[in-house]
Amino acid sequence: MPEPILSVQDLHTHFLTDNKEVPAVDGVSIELHKGEVVGIVGESGCGKSVTSLSIMQLVPNPPGKIVKGEIKFKGKNLTYATEKQMRKIRGNEISMIFQEPMTSLDPLFTIGNQLIEAIRIHQKVSKKDAKNYSIELLNLVGIPRASEVVDEFPHQLSGGMRQRVMIAMAMSCDPEVLIADEPTTALDVTIQAQILDLMRNLNKEKQTSILLITHDLGVVAEMCDRVVVMYSGKVVEEGSVREILKDPKHPYTKGLIRSLPNIRTTEQKLYSIPGTVMRPSLDQVGCRFAPRCEHSFDSCWEENPKLLKQESGRQVRCFLYDEEKSERGVTSNDKSYT
Protein backbone atom coordinates (compact mmCIF):
# COMPACT_ATOMS: atom_id res chain seq x y z
CA MET A 1 0.00 0.00 0.00
CA PRO A 2 1.50 3.38 -0.92
CA GLU A 3 1.71 6.22 1.59
CA PRO A 4 -1.61 8.01 1.99
CA ILE A 5 -1.62 11.57 0.68
CA LEU A 6 -3.45 12.76 3.76
CA SER A 7 -3.51 10.99 7.06
CA VAL A 8 -5.14 11.97 10.31
CA GLN A 9 -3.92 10.08 13.36
CA ASP A 10 -5.68 10.08 16.70
CA LEU A 11 -7.05 13.60 16.32
CA HIS A 12 -8.58 15.22 19.39
CA THR A 13 -10.23 18.61 18.91
CA HIS A 14 -11.85 20.06 21.98
CA PHE A 15 -14.05 23.08 22.47
CA LEU A 16 -14.19 25.07 25.65
CA THR A 17 -17.80 26.01 26.35
CA ASP A 18 -19.18 27.35 29.63
CA ASN A 19 -15.90 26.37 31.28
CA LYS A 20 -16.48 22.80 30.21
CA GLU A 21 -14.34 21.00 27.71
CA VAL A 22 -16.30 19.26 24.97
CA PRO A 23 -14.40 16.68 22.93
CA ALA A 24 -16.04 17.37 19.57
CA VAL A 25 -13.52 15.13 17.85
CA ASP A 26 -12.26 12.35 20.06
CA GLY A 27 -9.50 10.22 18.62
CA VAL A 28 -10.33 10.17 14.92
CA SER A 29 -8.00 8.53 12.39
CA ILE A 30 -8.59 8.78 8.67
CA GLU A 31 -6.43 8.00 5.66
CA LEU A 32 -6.94 9.36 2.18
CA HIS A 33 -5.01 7.96 -0.77
CA LYS A 34 -4.32 9.49 -4.15
CA GLY A 35 -7.37 9.51 -6.39
CA GLU A 36 -9.61 8.13 -3.69
CA VAL A 37 -13.00 9.42 -2.55
CA VAL A 38 -13.58 8.87 1.16
CA GLY A 39 -16.86 9.75 2.78
CA ILE A 40 -17.36 10.81 6.37
CA VAL A 41 -20.94 10.11 7.41
CA GLY A 42 -22.76 11.04 10.57
CA GLU A 43 -25.58 13.08 11.99
CA SER A 44 -25.37 16.67 13.17
CA GLY A 45 -23.01 17.10 16.05
CA CYS A 46 -20.97 13.95 15.39
CA GLY A 47 -17.82 15.97 14.68
CA LYS A 48 -17.50 15.43 10.95
CA SER A 49 -17.21 19.10 10.09
CA VAL A 50 -14.83 19.80 12.97
CA THR A 51 -12.60 17.02 11.64
CA SER A 52 -12.39 18.71 8.27
CA LEU A 53 -11.79 22.14 9.79
CA SER A 54 -9.03 20.64 11.92
CA ILE A 55 -7.32 19.29 8.83
CA MET A 56 -7.32 22.77 7.34
CA GLN A 57 -6.27 24.27 10.69
CA LEU A 58 -9.37 26.43 10.55
CA VAL A 59 -10.82 25.58 13.96
CA PRO A 60 -11.43 28.91 15.69
CA ASN A 61 -9.08 29.12 18.65
CA PRO A 62 -10.44 29.93 21.23
CA PRO A 63 -12.85 28.20 21.86
CA GLY A 64 -11.57 25.28 19.78
CA LYS A 65 -8.20 23.59 20.12
CA ILE A 66 -6.48 20.58 18.65
CA VAL A 67 -5.22 19.02 21.86
CA LYS A 68 -3.68 15.90 20.46
CA GLY A 69 -3.05 14.12 17.22
CA GLU A 70 -1.22 14.33 13.97
CA ILE A 71 -2.37 15.51 10.56
CA LYS A 72 0.05 14.54 7.86
CA PHE A 73 -0.19 15.85 4.32
CA LYS A 74 2.40 14.32 1.99
CA GLY A 75 4.65 13.61 4.96
CA LYS A 76 4.41 17.12 6.46
CA ASN A 77 2.78 17.44 9.84
CA LEU A 78 0.21 20.22 9.55
CA THR A 79 -0.33 20.50 13.29
CA TYR A 80 3.10 22.12 13.56
CA ALA A 81 2.71 24.32 10.49
CA THR A 82 2.77 28.07 11.00
CA GLU A 83 -0.08 30.22 9.70
CA LYS A 84 2.13 31.33 6.81
CA GLN A 85 2.90 27.77 5.78
CA MET A 86 -0.75 26.83 6.11
CA ARG A 87 -1.77 29.62 3.77
CA LYS A 88 0.44 28.16 1.08
CA ILE A 89 -1.25 24.81 1.47
CA ARG A 90 -4.83 26.00 1.82
CA GLY A 91 -6.49 26.53 -1.50
CA ASN A 92 -3.32 25.47 -3.28
CA GLU A 93 -2.76 21.88 -2.28
CA ILE A 94 -5.82 21.22 -0.13
CA SER A 95 -9.02 23.01 -1.07
CA MET A 96 -12.31 23.12 0.67
CA ILE A 97 -15.93 23.54 -0.44
CA PHE A 98 -18.42 24.51 2.21
CA GLN A 99 -22.05 23.68 2.64
CA GLU A 100 -23.58 27.07 2.22
CA PRO A 101 -22.60 28.60 -1.10
CA MET A 102 -24.47 31.76 -0.15
CA THR A 103 -22.26 32.63 2.79
CA SER A 104 -18.93 31.47 1.48
CA LEU A 105 -18.75 34.03 -1.31
CA ASP A 106 -18.23 37.71 -0.52
CA PRO A 107 -21.37 39.58 -1.62
CA LEU A 108 -19.43 42.81 -2.29
CA PHE A 109 -17.07 41.45 -4.92
CA THR A 110 -17.73 40.08 -8.38
CA ILE A 111 -17.23 36.38 -9.06
CA GLY A 112 -14.22 37.27 -11.22
CA ASN A 113 -12.63 39.32 -8.46
CA GLN A 114 -12.87 36.48 -6.00
CA LEU A 115 -11.55 33.89 -8.40
CA ILE A 116 -8.70 36.12 -9.53
CA GLU A 117 -7.73 36.76 -5.92
CA ALA A 118 -7.52 33.06 -5.19
CA ILE A 119 -5.49 32.42 -8.32
CA ARG A 120 -3.06 35.31 -7.81
CA ILE A 121 -2.34 34.40 -4.21
CA HIS A 122 -0.90 31.07 -5.25
CA GLN A 123 0.31 31.64 -8.79
CA LYS A 124 2.44 34.35 -10.36
CA VAL A 125 0.20 35.46 -13.21
CA SER A 126 -1.01 38.82 -14.48
CA LYS A 127 -4.52 39.99 -13.70
CA LYS A 128 -5.51 39.57 -17.32
CA ASP A 129 -4.28 35.99 -17.49
CA ALA A 130 -5.94 35.23 -14.19
CA LYS A 131 -9.22 36.55 -15.55
CA ASN A 132 -8.96 34.46 -18.68
CA TYR A 133 -8.15 31.46 -16.54
CA SER A 134 -11.20 32.21 -14.37
CA ILE A 135 -13.45 32.19 -17.42
CA GLU A 136 -11.90 28.90 -18.44
CA LEU A 137 -12.55 27.47 -15.00
CA LEU A 138 -16.16 28.66 -15.00
CA ASN A 139 -16.64 26.99 -18.36
CA LEU A 140 -15.09 23.85 -16.99
CA VAL A 141 -17.60 23.63 -14.15
CA GLY A 142 -20.43 24.10 -16.62
CA ILE A 143 -21.51 27.67 -16.05
CA PRO A 144 -23.29 29.04 -19.11
CA ARG A 145 -22.19 32.51 -20.34
CA ALA A 146 -19.01 32.31 -18.29
CA SER A 147 -17.56 35.50 -19.75
CA GLU A 148 -20.52 37.49 -18.40
CA VAL A 149 -20.76 35.67 -15.10
CA VAL A 150 -17.21 36.70 -14.12
CA ASP A 151 -18.42 40.26 -13.86
CA GLU A 152 -21.55 39.44 -11.91
CA PHE A 153 -22.09 39.45 -8.17
CA PRO A 154 -22.95 36.36 -6.10
CA HIS A 155 -26.56 37.46 -5.55
CA GLN A 156 -27.17 37.32 -9.28
CA LEU A 157 -26.49 33.58 -9.33
CA SER A 158 -28.63 30.68 -8.19
CA GLY A 159 -27.56 28.29 -5.44
CA GLY A 160 -26.32 25.67 -7.87
CA MET A 161 -24.33 28.24 -9.83
CA ARG A 162 -22.75 29.58 -6.64
CA GLN A 163 -21.70 26.09 -5.64
CA ARG A 164 -20.15 25.68 -9.09
CA VAL A 165 -18.23 28.91 -8.57
CA MET A 166 -16.99 27.53 -5.23
CA ILE A 167 -15.84 24.37 -6.97
CA ALA A 168 -14.17 26.42 -9.70
CA MET A 169 -12.36 28.39 -7.01
CA ALA A 170 -11.37 25.23 -5.17
CA MET A 171 -10.02 23.73 -8.39
CA SER A 172 -8.19 26.86 -9.52
CA CYS A 173 -4.81 25.69 -8.25
CA ASP A 174 -5.19 22.02 -9.09
CA PRO A 175 -5.28 20.86 -5.48
CA GLU A 176 -4.36 17.30 -4.66
CA VAL A 177 -6.99 17.05 -1.97
CA LEU A 178 -10.48 18.47 -2.05
CA ILE A 179 -12.44 18.56 1.18
CA ALA A 180 -16.14 18.94 0.46
CA ASP A 181 -18.22 19.65 3.55
CA GLU A 182 -21.85 18.86 2.70
CA PRO A 183 -21.42 20.31 -0.79
CA THR A 184 -24.94 19.52 -1.97
CA THR A 185 -27.01 19.72 1.19
CA ALA A 186 -28.41 23.16 0.41
CA LEU A 187 -29.23 22.25 -3.19
CA ASP A 188 -32.18 20.65 -4.95
CA VAL A 189 -31.89 17.05 -6.13
CA THR A 190 -31.60 17.83 -9.83
CA ILE A 191 -28.89 20.39 -9.09
CA GLN A 192 -27.27 18.00 -6.63
CA ALA A 193 -27.00 15.42 -9.42
CA GLN A 194 -25.20 18.01 -11.57
CA ILE A 195 -22.72 18.93 -8.83
CA LEU A 196 -21.97 15.30 -7.91
CA ASP A 197 -21.39 14.55 -11.57
CA LEU A 198 -18.95 17.45 -11.75
CA MET A 199 -17.03 16.27 -8.70
CA ARG A 200 -16.88 12.73 -10.04
CA ASN A 201 -15.36 13.99 -13.29
CA LEU A 202 -12.73 16.01 -11.43
CA ASN A 203 -11.79 12.95 -9.46
CA LYS A 204 -11.49 10.80 -12.57
CA GLU A 205 -9.72 13.26 -14.82
CA LYS A 206 -7.32 14.93 -12.42
CA GLN A 207 -6.96 12.17 -9.83
CA THR A 208 -7.97 14.63 -7.12
CA SER A 209 -8.53 12.89 -3.81
CA ILE A 210 -11.83 13.91 -2.26
CA LEU A 211 -12.85 13.83 1.38
CA LEU A 212 -16.62 14.07 1.20
CA ILE A 213 -18.46 14.97 4.37
CA THR A 214 -22.16 14.29 4.25
CA HIS A 215 -25.12 12.97 6.16
CA ASP A 216 -26.73 11.53 3.06
CA LEU A 217 -26.03 7.82 2.57
CA GLY A 218 -27.37 8.05 -0.97
CA VAL A 219 -24.68 10.56 -1.91
CA VAL A 220 -22.10 8.28 -0.28
CA ALA A 221 -23.25 5.31 -2.35
CA GLU A 222 -22.85 7.30 -5.54
CA MET A 223 -19.54 8.98 -4.84
CA CYS A 224 -17.29 7.21 -2.39
CA ASP A 225 -14.82 4.36 -2.42
CA ARG A 226 -14.50 4.11 1.33
CA VAL A 227 -16.72 5.33 4.16
CA VAL A 228 -16.00 6.39 7.72
CA VAL A 229 -19.04 6.48 10.00
CA MET A 230 -18.81 8.87 12.94
CA TYR A 231 -20.92 9.04 16.05
CA SER A 232 -20.48 11.53 18.87
CA GLY A 233 -16.89 12.46 17.99
CA LYS A 234 -15.63 8.97 17.36
CA VAL A 235 -15.20 6.73 14.35
CA VAL A 236 -17.57 3.82 14.90
CA GLU A 237 -17.09 2.00 11.64
CA GLU A 238 -14.97 2.10 8.52
CA GLY A 239 -14.99 0.07 5.34
CA SER A 240 -15.63 0.10 1.61
CA VAL A 241 -18.92 1.55 0.41
CA ARG A 242 -20.27 -1.88 -0.36
CA GLU A 243 -19.28 -3.29 3.02
CA ILE A 244 -20.83 -0.43 4.94
CA LEU A 245 -24.08 -0.18 3.03
CA LYS A 246 -24.66 -3.86 2.36
CA ASP A 247 -23.22 -5.41 5.48
CA PRO A 248 -23.07 -2.83 8.27
CA LYS A 249 -21.64 -4.13 11.53
CA HIS A 250 -22.07 -1.41 14.12
CA PRO A 251 -25.59 -1.14 15.54
CA TYR A 252 -25.58 2.60 14.81
CA THR A 253 -24.75 2.12 11.13
CA LYS A 254 -27.32 -0.63 10.94
CA GLY A 255 -29.98 1.59 12.48
CA LEU A 256 -29.06 4.52 10.27
CA ILE A 257 -29.44 2.46 7.11
CA ARG A 258 -32.66 0.88 8.26
CA SER A 259 -34.23 4.19 9.15
CA LEU A 260 -33.84 5.54 5.62
CA PRO A 261 -37.06 5.54 3.63
CA ASN A 262 -36.24 3.75 0.41
CA ILE A 263 -37.53 4.98 -2.90
CA ARG A 264 -37.42 1.45 -4.32
CA THR A 265 -39.22 -0.58 -1.73
CA THR A 266 -42.22 0.03 0.43
CA GLU A 267 -42.27 -0.82 4.08
CA GLN A 268 -45.17 -0.31 6.38
CA LYS A 269 -43.23 1.20 9.22
CA LEU A 270 -39.84 2.81 9.31
CA TYR A 271 -37.28 1.59 11.76
CA SER A 272 -36.12 4.32 14.09
CA ILE A 273 -33.25 4.51 16.52
CA PRO A 274 -34.72 5.44 19.90
CA GLY A 275 -33.50 8.53 21.69
CA THR A 276 -31.27 11.31 20.43
CA VAL A 277 -27.57 11.93 19.94
CA MET A 278 -25.70 12.48 23.21
CA ARG A 279 -23.46 15.46 23.51
CA PRO A 280 -19.88 14.30 23.83
CA SER A 281 -18.28 14.95 27.19
CA LEU A 282 -14.91 14.15 28.68
CA ASP A 283 -16.04 12.38 31.82
CA GLN A 284 -18.12 9.85 29.97
CA VAL A 285 -17.28 6.19 30.28
CA GLY A 286 -18.54 3.47 28.00
CA CYS A 287 -19.78 3.31 24.47
CA ARG A 288 -21.34 6.56 23.31
CA PHE A 289 -24.07 4.70 21.52
CA ALA A 290 -24.98 2.42 24.44
CA PRO A 291 -28.02 4.44 25.60
CA ARG A 292 -29.65 4.03 22.20
CA CYS A 293 -28.38 0.56 21.39
CA GLU A 294 -30.65 -2.46 21.58
CA HIS A 295 -27.73 -4.85 21.98
CA SER A 296 -25.95 -3.04 24.80
CA PHE A 297 -24.68 -5.14 27.72
CA ASP A 298 -22.63 -4.48 30.84
CA SER A 299 -19.27 -3.86 29.17
CA CYS A 300 -20.82 -1.19 26.96
CA TRP A 301 -21.57 0.95 30.00
CA GLU A 302 -18.30 0.32 31.83
CA GLU A 303 -15.52 0.53 29.28
CA ASN A 304 -14.75 2.40 26.11
CA PRO A 305 -14.85 0.00 23.18
CA LYS A 306 -11.73 -0.10 21.02
CA LEU A 307 -11.71 0.19 17.29
CA LEU A 308 -11.37 -3.39 16.11
CA LYS A 309 -9.52 -3.90 12.85
CA GLN A 310 -9.78 -6.46 10.14
CA GLU A 311 -6.93 -7.07 7.72
CA SER A 312 -8.85 -5.69 4.78
CA GLY A 313 -9.03 -2.33 6.54
CA ARG A 314 -12.55 -2.83 7.82
CA GLN A 315 -12.93 -1.38 11.30
CA VAL A 316 -15.69 -1.36 13.85
CA ARG A 317 -15.93 0.04 17.36
CA CYS A 318 -18.26 -2.31 19.17
CA PHE A 319 -17.98 -4.92 21.91
CA LEU A 320 -20.27 -7.24 19.99
CA TYR A 321 -17.33 -8.09 17.78
CA ASP A 322 -14.85 -8.35 20.62
CA GLU A 323 -14.53 -12.01 21.50
CA GLU A 324 -13.39 -11.42 25.05
CA LYS A 325 -16.28 -9.15 25.88
CA SER A 326 -19.20 -10.39 23.93
CA GLU A 327 -21.14 -13.19 25.52
CA ARG A 328 -23.60 -13.30 22.74
CA GLY A 329 -21.53 -15.11 20.21
CA VAL A 330 -22.16 -12.58 17.48
CA THR A 331 -18.52 -12.96 16.63
CA SER A 332 -18.72 -16.66 15.85
CA ASN A 333 -18.74 -16.09 12.12
CA ASP A 334 -16.68 -12.95 12.31
CA LYS A 335 -13.45 -14.07 13.88
CA SER A 336 -11.08 -11.94 11.95
CA TYR A 337 -11.27 -8.80 14.10
CA THR A 338 -8.16 -8.20 16.16
Binding site: V189, T190, Q192, A193, L196, D216, L217, G218, V219, V220, A221, E222, V241, R242, L245, K246, I257, L260, N262, I263, R264
Partner: peptide
Protein backbone atom coordinates in the same frame (compact mmCIF):
# COMPACT_ATOMS: atom_id res chain seq x y z
CA UNK B 1 -36.37 14.05 -10.48
CA UNK B 2 -36.52 10.37 -9.63
CA UNK B 3 -33.31 9.50 -11.39
CA UNK B 4 -31.54 12.31 -9.53
CA UNK B 5 -32.29 10.93 -6.07
CA UNK B 6 -29.19 9.20 -4.77
CA UNK B 7 -29.92 5.70 -3.52
CA UNK B 8 -27.97 4.20 -0.65
CA UNK B 9 -27.15 1.05 -2.55
CA UNK B 10 -23.91 0.78 -4.52
CA UNK B 11 -25.17 -2.10 -6.67
Amino acid sequence: LMSAVPIADPD
